[in-house]
Write a protein that binds this DNA or RNA. Structure first.
Lengths: 253, 253
DNA sequence: GACGCTATGCGCGTTTTCGTTCGCCGGGCA
DNA sequence: TGCCCGGCGAACGAAAACGCGCATAGCGTC
């Protein structure tokens, strides 16, 4: 197993369990304790976790991962969710809103060949992907670029959204739960996502199982505003049931 | 198997799995590790993935958009003009507007490492190029995407620009002449470019010699609104002289 | 057939990674 | 107090991966 994969796995574990033991990690990855110590040191330098005697603990707020360690996380799950979400979209002319996120990006790629489609997005990577396709109409909100997530946010984005109406908004979130509603790591991003949701007739949330039941720093909207949640089988059944009772239809990809 | 096929396969894998191992790829495609490394290097240069030790991980933005319009034409001249234009920009904090165009794109790349820089642009390819640079602030106008030029235009763009002020606007045009002023082939694009010019203290036009003296369909603004024109030695001296008399300083790269 | 270009494989020196070993520190225990 | 012991940091060496230069082979053009 390569270093970057090991780092990803460590981050995944520490964010799920809250605390990890260096000895256990060494055994599990079949590497020496020194290697684990070096890994933890690097991750601590990047403020992705905090070291303790004998292991490490998660930092308070979930952190946005640098690209090199974000790579594989739940990639297949995201692709699965995106494909399922694509099948749920109606045929024929459609105006669609897309927020930023890996899952929405994959969905955008799947939609690239559709005709009669108008896409509104505040995500630069999605726009870059769709700008090549002459068959669909692409509208970007403006705004200030966030380097971590390629999203455009702020008053310019909000103002642009205020003048648009979408039939369906597909929203990628960092957390969704019955109690916390939709949440994300960044409060400005949350505000812009909320602005898009307000202009949409229906809200579809795409989130791989790791996001279900999680609550992050910034709230976007209440769970009742969501029409459909598309997730995968790794989602905790208890949380899924709670969300279902709160209103949204839940589709397991 | 040809190189391009291999590259495509690599991209497909990395986008599905999120992470790949160079050794596995070499074995699977029956080529040497050196070849795989070269492939990965090319793909990384195009920002289609990120290399790690022993392999690569997926990234979420494909930011090298193919050039749609007269890509190769006057390429050296455009690069020359862009480099000269970059030297004319003041040091220190600066708020800069950039319209779409090949020359402005090259200029954007030259500015990528600067600090204390705020860039306002309506060009998707420029934004995609700059989005990853954490040192500079990037603001996009929104708007409807034009597939030919990657520019965002229309009322959303105009509205976004109305709330911004730039010290310098760098404008790429299809034609500039003493009589016709600044012109371009598309009237909607012209309108948005004019909106940006109105919000700028100074206007700098970058245009290779073939544009000088030419007048195109849609007018952007009068020649008197331009502070500086940067062009190259292939520009017709008569037209240059006429422009100089009309007001703008003319710099030959 | 000669040529120029590109892709590929190989060899070599360099860098990165990882395991091992050593000494240090702090806590528990006789 | 003296001893042991687990975890930590630093240093060294081996192995793997890397970058670079060079030679070769395929391919299209003239």
């Amino acid at each position: 197993m390569r270093r970057s994969d090991r780092m990803t796995a460590i981050l995944d574990r520490v964010s799920r369990l809250g605390t990890i033991d260096a000895g256990v990690l060494a055994e599990e990855f079949a590497v020496s304790a020194a290697t684990i110590r070096r890994d933890l040191q690097v991750l601590e330098e990047q403020r992705l976790l905090a070291r303790t005697h004998g292991g490490a603990v998660a930092v308070d707020v979930a952190y946005e991962l640098p690209v090199r360690y974000r790579g594989g996380q739940n990639r297949e799950a995201k692709a699965l969710v995106a494909r399922r979400a694509a099948t749920l979209l109606p045929h024929g002319p459609l105006t669609l809103g897309l927020t930023g996120g890996t899952t929405t990006l994959i969905l955008a790629r799947l939609l690239a060949e559709r005709v009669d489609l108008t896409v509104v997005t505040n995500a630069l990577n999605i726009a870059a992907e769709l700008a090549l396709r002459p068959r669909l109409k692409l509208i970007m909100t403006g705004g200030v670029s966030r380097t971590q997530s390629y999203e455009l946010v702020g008053p310019i984005a909000d103002q642009a959204l205020a003048g648009l109406n979408m039939e369906i908004a597909v929203v990628g979130v960092d957390g969704i739960s019955a109690r916390g509603g939709l949440t994300t790591h960044d409060e400005i991003e949350a505000h812009t996502n909320a602005a898009m949701i307000r202009r949409a007739d229906r809200v579809m949330v795409v989130a791989d199982g790791s996001k279900v039941g999680r609550t992050c720093l910034a709230g976007i909207c209440a769970i009742g505003d969501v029409a459909v949640l598309v997730t995968d089988a790794s989602a905790d059944p208890g949380h899924v049931e709670a969300i279902r009772r709160a209103g949204p239809e839940v589709v397991i990809a």
